[in-house]
């Protein structure tokens, strides 16, 4: 790890002020991706602006029509939250299978979204639920947030403060894990808003994306057979040691089918 200067602001304003002064600085949320990258010297920020002391970023509010989760809420807290489990059980169970127990105790929603790892779980839920990403400056629709590989709509120094998830009628997430990293080779989040269905896919492309054919078919009839025969195009999907684009395309269909089955239970 290269040397850096460490800052621990106690509120959002201080954090933003620091970020505006430190061009090569990075916000430090849970650190589960950033500290790893720094250890391997793949990332070398001059400054770390640690958000851990900012209480405002740790709120979690579950209401009947929306769940709003602060950027610094840990995965384990989302998984265990009775409010989230009641309102959007699929979101709680997704949070409960991110990484491993230890990672879930540190990793945060905001950190995950800002990092936008192509195989992270949360982006699938954000897209499928049509969530709104709230920053210090504005509100960003899910569909406009994920821009590409590790790339988001966030501007320099812009800080995610919370994410608001509309409550669907039913939803489920299915993940096919990479045997080594345990990230998603393919993860599919299906959300039924009653007549309107959104399908978010992670792990398969440079960043999470929606699957329009499946959304249309499921809107017509929310049942596993609606997606079972949909052949996803392999073009543009990720290719690595563990899964070819063709295999990923196939898994999108399988995971979508299983997610629909789970949502209907």
């Amino acid at each position: 790890m290269h040397a850096f200067d460490y800052h621990r602001p106690s509120n959002v304003k201080e954090a933003l002020a620091l970020a505006s002064r430190k061009d090569e600085g990075r916000y430090l949320a849970g650190g589960q991706s950033l500290v790893q990258a720094m250890k391997l010297r793949l990332s070398s920020p001059t400054d770390l602006i640690d958000l851990n002391a900012i209480g405002d970023l740790k709120a979690l509010k579950a209401e009947s029509d929306a769940v709003t989760i602060g950027a610094m809420v840990r995965h384990a807290e989302v998984a265990a939250s009775s409010g989230v489990r009641k309102a959007i059980p699929a979101l709680a169970s997704l949070a409960g299978i991110i990484g491993d127990r230890q990672v879930r105790h540190m990793g945060t929603l905001g950190g995950s979204l800002a990092n936008n790892d192509p195989a992270a779980d949360y982006p699938a839920a954000v897209l499928a639920l049509g969530a709104t990403i709230v920053t210090d400056k504005r509100k960003i629709e899910a569909d406009k947030f994920f821009k590409g590989l590790y790339e988001t709509a966030l501007g320099p120094g812009e800080l995610i403060t919370a994410v608001s998830f509309p409550v669907p009628k039913r939803a489920a997430y299915m993940k096919f894990k990479n045997p080594a990293s345990r990230f998603a080779i393919v993860g599919v989040f299906v959300a039924d808003f009653g007549g309107k269905v959104r399908v978010g896919v992670t792990g398969a492309g440079p960043c999470a994306f929606r699957q329009a054919d499946m959304e249309k078919a499921l809107a017509a009839k929310f049942a596993p057979e609606s997606v079972a025969s949909i052949k996803v195009k392999a073009d543009g999907l990720n290719s690595d040691l563990h899964a070819s684009p063709e295999y990923r395309a196939h898994l999108i269909t399988v995971m979508a089918k299983r997610a629909v089955e789970a949502a209907m239970k």
Binding site: N178, P179, A180, S181, L241, H242
Partner: peptide, 8 residues
């Protein structure tokens, strides 16, 4: 397969 992230 140079780390536990790729070698299972």
């Amino acid at each position: 397969t140079g780390s536990f992230s790729d070698y299972a």
